[in-house]
Computed example of a mutant assay.
Amino acid sequence: MNRTKKAIFESGVKVFSEKGFTGATMDEIAANAGLVKGTLYYHFKSKQEIFDYIISEGISIIKDEVQEAVKREKNYISKIRELCRIQLNVVYNNRDFVKVVMSELWGRGDINSEIKNAITKYISYIENNLKEGMESGEVRKGEPSFMAYTFLGMLCSSAVYEFINKDKENVSKVIDNLITYMVEGIGNPI
């Protein structure tokens, strides 16, 4: 990402997180990026195009970071633990981006196609890791698609928990608790 596009990305994330898609304007995005409006229009034709770029790039950055960390792990439970740890750290360190995604996911009646496609691809990535874990015998057999959605839901719920309790909870503790509950379950051992 070149310097101008990076400035637009960061500005767009900030403006969309504060104003939402409907309230954001090209003028605000340009001003916040320190650009004249013409430069913004040189790179992007519309607010929708900027929004789609932000979603696509943001999800791609998260996915690349997760994939790189997961590659280093040898077994699938470790991969799932690392996927969880990296994902939550990325979420906690990019709150404005997550706020944009979440508000658009649940805020408007129609889900933006860029968000839907990006999340679908990410869930597919999680599902493939779970399938491989099932094939190796490290992950309990089950419905990998549903498990992947459940996994993502638990990650989102943990992010909400941390956002609300950020002054009371240590991020590492939240991550460790999620991993324990997700991998080991919440039932008492028999």
Rank of each mutant, 00 (worst) to 15 (best):
M1G: 15
N2D: 09
N2E: 08
R3W: 15
R3A: 15
T4P: 05
T4I: 10
K5A: 11
K6A: 09
A7C: 08
E10N: 11
E10M: 10
E10G: 07
S11D: 01
S11T: 02
S11L: 00
F16Q: 02
T22P: 10
G23P: 05
A24H: 00
T25N: 03
T25R: 02
M26D: 01
D27T: 13
E28A: 04
A30F: 00
A30E: 03
N32D: 15
N32T: 10
A33G: 02
G34A: 06
G38P: 05
G38N: 14
T39M: 05
Y42G: 09
K45Y: 06
K45H: 08
K47T: 00
F51L: 08
F51Q: 01
D52K: 04
D52E: 09
D52T: 06
D52H: 04
Y53N: 08
Y53W: 12
Y53S: 08
Y53V: 10
I55A: 04
I55L: 05
S56N: 11
S56Q: 10
I59A: 12
I59N: 07
S60F: 08
K63W: 08
Q67V: 09
E68L: 04
V70E: 03
E73C: 03
K74H: 15
I77V: 09
I77C: 02
I77H: 02
S78E: 08
I80E: 02
E82P: 04
I86L: 06
I86N: 01
N89H: 10
V90F: 13
Y92T: 09
R95F: 09
R95L: 09
F97R: 00
V98D: 01
V98H: 02
V101C: 05
M102L: 14
M102W: 07
E104I: 02
L105V: 11
W106K: 12
W106P: 13
W106I: 14
D110V: 13
N112Q: 06
S113K: 13
E114P: 09
E114V: 15
E114K: 13
K116C: 06
N117A: 14
N117E: 12
A118E: 01
A118P: 05
T120R: 12
T120W: 14
S124L: 12
E127M: 00
N129F: 08
L130A: 07
L130N: 00
K131F: 06
E132K: 11
E132L: 09
E132H: 12
G137H: 09
V139F: 02
V139L: 07
K141A: 10
G142W: 05
E143Y: 13
E143G: 10
P144R: 00
P144A: 05
S145I: 12
F146V: 15
M147Q: 07
M147A: 09
A148G: 06
A148N: 03
A148R: 02
F151E: 01
M154Q: 06
M154L: 11
L155G: 02
L155D: 03
C156Y: 08
C156H: 09
S157C: 15
S157R: 13
S158R: 00
A159N: 07
A159P: 00
V160Y: 03
Y161F: 15
E162V: 12
F163R: 06
I164Y: 00
N165A: 11
D167W: 10
D167P: 06
K168N: 12
E169Y: 07
V171G: 14
S172C: 15
N177I: 14
N177E: 13
L178N: 04
Y181Q: 13
G185T: 08
G185M: 08
I186A: 14
N188P: 14
N188I: 15
N188F: 14
P189C: 11
P189M: 13
